[in-house]
Design a protein around this nucleic acid. Structure first.
Lengths: 114, 114
DNA sequence: TCATCATATAACAATATAATTATATAAGCA
DNA sequence: TGCTTATATAATTATATTGTTATATGATGA
C-alpha cells in the first residue's frame, strides 16, 4: 500500500517518542482500550509521576487524547493524528497487549466507568 | 497483513535508532542504494565523525552492513535483519530520498566503483 | 468544609545522546 | 617508502532524557 509521505522530521519525532519501551507499550495498550493513569501505574509498576510524564509527551505530540471521567483521567489513542497510519503499522509489529489488561481485571484493579 | 510480533524491547530499540532525523534519512537513502561515508558527509553537510558515529550505531544494531571497495567503505541496508519488515513499513512513510542522490550525481561527487 | 483519591507539575539528579576536535588506522598511489 | 585520501575512534562538551521526591491541583464523598 502506497503511503502519503510525511516529512522526515515528523516521522522521526513519532519514532523518537515510540522509541521508549514504556511509551511504546502504552500505545499498544491504548490500541486495545482507553486506560487511566492509575491502571498504567499498576501495569508498569512505575511511579505515578513517571507515567504522567510519559503521557504528557504523548499528549503534547498529539498522539493521545485525555478525557476526564469522574475522578479519573482516561487516555485514548488520537485516531485523527496525521501519523496514525504509521503508528498502526508500528504497533502491528509488537505483541498484543491484551494480556496486561486481562491481568488487571483478574487483580480487580481495572477501572470501569460505564 | 499480519506481522510476526517481535518483542516490545526489540521494536523500541529500532524506533529509538530511527527516531533521529539523520539516521532515518540515512536508512531512506540506503533503501535506494548503497552509500559510502563521504557521500553521506556531502549530503548531510555534517562532519565525517558525526556521520561515522551514526553509522556505527546502525551497524551495531545490525541494521546496516559495510563492505570495503577500494578506499571506500560502502554501507547497505541489512535485508536479513529480523526487523527488516518493520523498517520497510516505516520508510514507506517518509519521502523518497532519490532526490538527494540525484543532486550528488549532478555535483559530480557520486562515488562509483562498478 | 475537610479528608482522600487521582493526577499533574516542579525541582533535581543520574544517565544518555550527539556533536566537535584531535588523533589513529588503513588503503592507494607516486 | 612516504604522502594523501577515506574512515574510525577517543576525549570532551553541551544538551536531552528519564526517573525520583516533594508539592500542587482538582474531584469525590463523609
Amino acid at each position: 500500500m502506497k503511503q502519503v509521505a510525511a516529512s522526515v522530521e515528523e516521522v522521526a519525532t513519532v519514532l523518537k517518542l515510540l522509541g521508549d519501551k514504556t511509551r511504546l507499550t502504552i500505545m499498544g495498550l491504548l490500541n486495545n482500550q482507553d486506560c487511566c493513569v492509575c491502571e498504567l501505574v499498576e501495569i508498569f509498576q512505575m511511579s505515578q509521576p513517571a507515567i504522567s510524564q510519559h503521557l504528557r509527551k504523548l499528549k503534547d505530540a498529539g498522539l493521545v487524547k485525555e478525557t476526564r471521567k469522574a475522578q479519573w483521567i482516561f487516555y485514548s489513542m488520537n485516531k485523527e493524528h496525521e501519523m496514525h497510519s504509521l503508528i498502526k503499522d508500528i504497533l502491528a509489529h509488537i505483541p498484543d497487549q491484551k494480556e496486561k489488561l486481562k491481568e488487571l481485571e483478574e487483580k480487580g484493579t481495572k477501572i470501569s466507568c460505564e
